[in-house]
Design a protein around this nucleic acid. Structure first.
Lengths: 205, 205
DNA sequence: TGTACATCAGTGAACGCGCGTTCACTGATGTAC
DNA sequence: TGTACATCAGTGAACGCGCGTTCACTGATGTAC
C-alpha cells in the first residue's frame, strides 16, 4: 500500500481513485489518461499495465460504484424490514446518500456513457443494485388494491427518475439550479406526496 | 445563407448548429473547436471571428436553447388556460417534448456546466423559461387548502426533478436504463399520482 | 542464510498527431461619389 | 453605370504543447535450492 520507490504497490486502485477525483472535478470526458497517471504519481505508460485505456479505467470505477451502491441499497432495504413502506423509503434515502457521498462513482455509473453491457461483471453488479429498488417497489405495491396498482416496474422507474432528477439538479454544483430546499427534504417530501397519491399512506397527515 | 465561395454567409449560426450536433453525438466536453469548425466547412481560425472560444460557443447554444424553451413553455401554458391544472400538465409535457426535440440544446443548457450567471442575456432567458414552470405551479397550488399547501417553489422543484430524471434516464440513449414504458407515459403517470397525492385530482379515477 | 534467476511493474525516450491560438494575408462585399 | 476604396470574413502557415501508444529497458520483488 505504500508508494515509495520504483514499485507503486497498488497502482491499479490508485488510478481508479485518481479517475474518480478527476471525474468529480472535470466530468467523465474532461480529463486525459495522462492526467490520471500524473495524479497517481506515475508515467502514462504505466497505466497500460493495468487498463486497456481510458474507457476501461472508467468502467472499473463504475463497477466499483455499482458494488458499493448495491451494498448500500441492500443494507438500507434490510434496515426497513419487515415494513415494506419503511424499506422503500430507506432505499430512496440511500440513493441520495450514495450520490452525495460518492459523486465520482455516481457520474461514472450514470453519466459517463459506459454501457452496463460492456462486461458481464458490470452487468451483474448493476442488476443487483437496481434489483433492490425494484424489489422494494414490488413489495410495496402489494399493499395497493390490485385493480388500481400500477406495474411495479413503473413504480420503480418513477422513484428512480425522481431521485436522479433531484441529484442532478439540486445535489450537485449545477449552477442556477439551486433551490431553497435541501435535496434530502425535496426528495423526501416528493416521495411522500407520491405515496399518498397511491393511497399507501394516510391522505391526511 | 448560401455558403459558396470565400465568405460563408452565416458562419456564426452554422457553428452553433455544428456545436449542437457534436454535443448530441459526443457530449458537451467530447468535441473540439476544430471539429466544430470542420463541420461548418471552415478553418479553425475563422471561429475566432465570432466566438471567444469553445465555452463561448456552447454558451450561445445554451442561450438559444433557453429562448426556444421559454417560447415553448409559454405557449404550452397558454394552451391550458384558464384551467390551472391543464396549464400545469401542458408545461410538463412541453418540458419532455423540448428535451426530445432539442437534445443538443438540452444538454448545453443543463449538462454542459455553463453557468447561467455567465451573461445577463443568458440569465434572463433562463429566468423567463423557468419562470413559466413556477408560475404554473403557483397557480395550481392555489387550489390546495392553505394549511396543507407546500410552497410552490418546492412544488415546481419536484416536478422539474421528476421531468429531468425521466429525460436523463429514459428519454436518452443511456444504455441499461431502458424501461418498458415510453418516457411520455412514465412522466404523465408519475405526475398524475403526484397530483392525486396533493388532492388536486380525484383520488379515484 | 545466501545466491541465482524468473517475474513483475515501472521508466523514459520516441513517434506521429491534432489541438488552440496568433498573425499577416487576401478575396469578397458594400458604399461614396 | 463605373470606379476607388474601406471594411469585413475568411485563409493558411506557423508555433508550442500535451496527448495516446509502443518499445526496449531496468529496478524491485519473490522463490527455488
Amino acid at each position: 500500500m505504500g508508494k515509495q520507490g520504483y514499485h507503486h504497490g497498488n497502482l491499479r486502485q490508485a488510478l481508479v481513485v485518481a479517475c474518480l477525483h478527476l471525474i468529480e472535478e472535470k466530468g467523465p470526458t474532461g480529463f486525459t489518461l495522462s492526467e490520471a497517471a500524473r495524479e497517481a504519481g506515475v508515467t502514462p505508460a504505466a497505466v497500460y499495465r493495468h487498463f486497456e485505456g481510458r474507457e476501461d479505467l472508467i468502467a472499473e470505477a463504475a463497477l466499483q460504484g455499482y458494488e458499493i451502491f448495491g451494498d448500500l441499497m441492500e443494507h438500507a432495504y434490510g434496515t426497513g424490514q419487515p415494513s415494506a413502506l419503511a424499506s422503500f423509503e430507506a432505499t430512496g434515502r440511500a440513493y441520495l446518500a450514495f450520490a452525495r457521498r460518492h459523486p465520482g462513482h455516481y457520474v461514472a455509473m450514470f453519466e459517463s456513457g459506459i454501457s452496463v453491457q460492456r462486461t458481464p461483471a458490470l452487468n451483474l453488479a448493476a442488476s443487483r443494485a437496481m434489483g433492490v429498488l425494484e424489489k422494494a417497489a414490488h413489495a410495496l405495491s402489494q399493499h395497493i388494491p390490485a385493480d388500481k396498482r400500477p406495474p411495479p416496474q413503473m413504480f420503480a422507474a418513477h422513484i428512480w427518475a425522481l431521485s436522479h432528477g433531484v441529484v442532478e439538479l439540486f445535489a450537485r454544483g449545477t449552477p442556477g439550479a439551486r433551490s431553497p430546499f435541501p435535496p434530502e427534504d425535496l426528495l423526501e417530501s416528493a416521495i411522500g406526496i407520491y405515496l399518498r397519491g397511491l393511497g399507501l399512506i394516510a391522505p391526511d397527515k
